[in-house]
């Protein structure tokens, strides 16, 4: 007995099964697609937030603002001192002029506001880069504490509060993603299981005859398993298409708000692995759903 004729039979029978109840099939696929779209949206948000966190790791600085008018020699002295602190990878002095230039670049058209100023209000500062092990809210706090109180330094800004808040947001989105994923997985499996149960009921005469002419249980069950997989995977493809459409068409409308939330990072869609994961995940849920349908009262 060859594998190929059987595989061909299973696929033909599964497709015929899906076609024979188009409304039920489409409703099931649509519901799965919406479920996976919801999950995919949060997964995409999480992916982008996570990538911002990875990128920020290289850009986390502790900034020490010098007192106004501190002589350059004293600034260099403090820089040498700061470089010796444990956890510091390197230091760089940002002069008043450079600080103003950066501000000008940062505000864009708002730079016109600076035209009215008679003198540069921005202080010189020391940008202190941290070793990778200290690139966290806690690590920043430790380094900032070591520099606190040094004569000539007026203020220390480490951004640890922002990082802590951001990490909490990432954890929250991750939690939502997992919770939503679990709930929607169960919902998807139930949808597929019910659709397959209906299909089994609709084809009970055929199953009886197949059994009488010598079809094994696995021979009769395989097309239903395949139907479940196809429903789930199709739902996954549908979710992917919808998500991509939303990403391309709707997201630009909220770009400003998202930039504020994500710190100006450019948003990226799923890579090939992520896209295949969503479709395969849909297929897997479909398979589990159809297994549940077949094990719950399958008596050909």
């Amino acid at each position: 007995m060859s594998v190929l004729p059987r595989a061909s039979y299973f696929l033909r029978t599964a497709l015929r099964g899906l076609r024979s109840n188009p409304v039920t099939t489409l409703v099931a696929m649509g519901t799965i697609a919406v479920s996976l779209l919801l999950f995919g949206s949060f997964a995409l948000l999480l992916q982008n937030m996570q990538s911002l966190l990875d990128r920020l790791g290289d850009e986390l600085y502790v900034t020490a603002f010098f007192e106004q008018g501190l002589p350059s020699a004293k600034q260099r002295e403090l820089a040498v001192l700061a470089a010796t602190v444990e956890g510091v990878e390197g230091v760089r002095i940002v002069s008043e002029t450079e600080a103003l230039e950066r501000f000008r670049d940062g505000v864009g058209s708002g730079a016109a506001l600076l035209e009215g100023l008679s003198e540069n209000p921005l202080p010189a500062s020391l940008e202190i880069a941290l070793v990778p092990a200290r690139r966290s809210a806690q690590g920043m706090a430790v380094v900032a504490e070591s520099l606190n109180g040094l004569r000539g330094i007026e203020d220390l800004v480490s951004g640890e509060d922002w990082v802590e808040g951001y990490l909490r947001s990432v954890a929250l989105v991750r939690g939502v993603c997992i919770g939503l994923g679990l709930i929607l997985s169960i919902a998807t499996m139930l949808i597929v299981a019910n659709t397959i149960r209906l299909a089994i009921y609709a084809r009970r005469d055929e199953l009886e005859i197949l059994s009488l002419v010598g079809a094994s249980r696995s021979f009769m069950q395989t097309p239903f398993l395949l139907e479940g997989v196809l429903q789930g995977a199709s739902g996954g493809v549908g979710a992917l298409v919808l998500l991509f459409a939303l990403f391309r068409l709707v997201l630009p409308e909220f770009e400003f708000g998202l930039e504020m939330l994500l710190g100006g990072i450019r948003l990226h869609f799923f890579g090939l692995g992520g896209m295949m994961g969503l479709v395969a995940g849909g297929g897997m849920l479909g398979l589990v759903g159809s297994v549940a349908a077949l094990t719950g009262g399958w008596r050909p």
Partner: peptide, 9 residues
């Protein structure tokens, strides 16, 4: 269907 059950091409 009898032959398909037997896996014939």
């Amino acid at each position: 269907m009898v032959l398909e059950v037997m896996g014939r091409p």
